[in-house]
């Protein structure tokens, strides 16, 4: 399962899944490029359990404003459409496996 491109228009529908993770990023952001492989691996190991998406903040400002995102990378975690967690910046201990466990324990 690959990471789905999410936009302002598709955002609410996407995060309406039982579990959803959205990586808010931009191509010129170095730390975002380092998070990307973790998000890709999360999509692989959680196929069917967690909807995994990425949102380009620059072209989707409405979502950034709605969730008060002022720093990237920001990972938004949803359960049944409700925001349950927000991970900002690079966390040296973060792995796809730890992220999956965190999400499914919510």
């Amino acid at each position: 399962m690959s990471v789905i491109e999410v936009t302002d228009a598709s955002f609410d529908g996407f995060v309406g899944a039982k579990y959803a993770v959205v990586d808010c990023w931009a191509p010129w952001c170095g730390p975002c490029r380092r998070i990307a492989p973790i998000i890709e691996k999360l999509a692989e190991i959680s196929a069917g359990e967690i909807a995994v998406g990425k949102l380009l903040v620059d072209s989707n400002p409405a979502t950034s404003r709605k969730y008060n995102i002022t720093a990237i990378p920001t990972i938004l975690v949803f359960k049944n459409g409700k925001l349950e967690g927000q991970i900002v910046g690079l966390n040296p201990g973060l792995t796809a496996e730890s992220l999956k466990d965190t999400v499914l324990e919510m």
Partner: peptide, 13 residues
């Protein structure tokens, strides 16, 4: 206040 106005990357944010 990290992520709430504090940033370590001007190019990113």
């Amino acid at each position: 206040l990290f992520g709430k106005g504090v940033s370590y990357c001007a190019a990113c944010d």
